[in-house]
Structure formats: C-alpha cells, structure tokens
C-alpha cells in the first residue's frame, strides 16, 4: 500500500518563535502532524466482523462494503421473514468476530447499548459468543436447546447484569478475572457471533444498534493464553 507523505513546517516555526520570546521559553506550541489512516469494511477491519465462512451468513449483510447488519426479517437471505411469536430463537454463527490487531483483547457488548434486552417475558435480544478459543466455561445440560457447550452472552462480562441471559458465565464467577478470560481473543483468533431473541404473543418490528467493544486494556493480568 502506498501512501503519500509530506512535510509541514508550521510546528517547527512555532517552536522557534517561542524561543525568541526569551524570558519564559516556550509558552505554546502547536504542531501539525500527518496521520494516514485506512478505513475498511467490517470483513477486513482490525476488529473483523466476517460472515464469509459462517453457517448463518444469510442473516448478515453489508459486511463486505461497510458496517455489517443483522437481518432477522424479510431482508434475510432465507424464505422466512421473521422469528416466531411466543418463542426463543437462537441463531449462532451469523458472522465471525476476529481479532486482526496485534494484541489480545476482551470482546463484549455494552449492555446499555441494547434497547430491548431479554426479560423473562416480552421481546428482547441478547448477543452471544460461541466456538470461543479461550476460557473454560461449559454450559450445563439443562440449558435451552440450540445453545452450544461453550456459548456465553456477550454482555455477561459485566459483574452485575441488569437482566436475564440465555447463557452466561456462572453467577459466582461474574466480574472475576477468570470470567473475563472467557471473552479474550488473541491476535488472529475468532469466535462465532450469534443472537438470542425472546418474543411474546405480539408482532414486533424493531431496528436497533448494539455496540461491540474490543478492549486490550481490560485483559486480566492473569491471562496467560489458552484454556484458563
């Protein structure tokens, strides 16, 4: 990739001008510096959201051209046009979340960004991670159908969840380093992003935006690679 580079003299001149004041040396410096940035579509970004090898990629669109959208409506690339009433629907592996940076990150969804969180009844959604490379959490057999063994709620990293989840790190572990390690992706690693939808006996048509976060600064200092 070739990028142009050019020099800007303003910063140097400002520094020199300050020196001329003599008394207090530098009082103010404003230095203009060049920042070259490439932006990329989701399937190619540092935090890649890539449906290309996902089982349920039919529910994702736009990942190759901009910001990915999940369609659980007539825009989905399937015959159905929505989730059932009075049901829980589990769709795993809509796209892969892959760390294409250079260091481990903790990946989660900010629960406050979810407009309709899951409740015991009524309409709600909860984003899920499965097929995860790190952590040791295993779901109990009593959990609802379609949930994978290592599946967790992406909002489960928070110590005091404001609502119910379909699957999450056990109560005793929430907020601990051990629980946080479940959400780690090292450079090159990925997990499957899925979604859990709870519905009541009424039609719902919503469009909402959820916030996916990847943060290297909250990787527990105890994290030492696979498994723990």
């Amino acid at each position: 990739m070739e990028r142009r580079k050019f020099l800007i003299g303003a910063g140097s001149l400002a520094a020199g001008g300050a020196a001329a004041l003599g008394s207090g040396a530098f009082t103010s410096v404003q230095a203009d510096r060049t920042v070259s940035v490439s932006t990329a579509a989701d399937n190619d970004a540092f935090l890649a959201l890539d449906p290309s090898n996902s089982t349920n990629q039919a529910y994702a669109s736009n990942a190759g051209s901009g910001a990915v959208t999940i369609n659980l409506d007539s825009d989905a690339g399937v015959e159905g046009t929505g989730v059932n009433r009075n049901s829980t629907t589990q769709i795993n592996d809509i796209f892969k979340v892959r760390n294409q940076g250079t260091q481990p990150v903790v990946v989660y969804v900010d629960p406050s960004s979810i407009e309709n969180p899951t409740t015991s009844d009524g309409f709600g959604i909860d984003p899920q991670a499965s097929n995860r490379p790190n952590g040791d959490y295993v779901n109990t057999s009593g959990i609802s159908g379609g949930v994978e063994d290592d599946q967790i709620s992406l909002t489960g990293v928070f110590s005091n969840p404001p609502y119910e989840y379909s699957a999450y790190v056990s109560d005793a572990e929430q907020g601990t380093a051990d629980a946080t390690e479940e959400f780690v992706l090292e450079a090159g690693e990925s997990f499957d992003f899925g979604i859990y939808v709870n519905t009541a006996d009424s039609d719902v048509s919503v469009s909402e935006t959820i916030q996916l976060v990847a943060d290297a600064t909250v990787v527990p200092s105890s994290y030492d690679g696979q498994g723990e």
């Binding site: 404003q30 060049t34 940035v37 490439s38």
Partner: peptide, 12 residues
C-alpha cells in the same frame, strides 16, 4: 471506506 491523509494539531 478508503485511505485518508489527515492533519492532527498537537498543542502544548
């Protein structure tokens, strides 16, 4: 999407 060359002013 694209490549951008921008200017950031650092102020002390």
């Amino acid at each position: 999407p694209g490549e951008f060359e921008e200017e950031l002013t650092i102020v002390a």
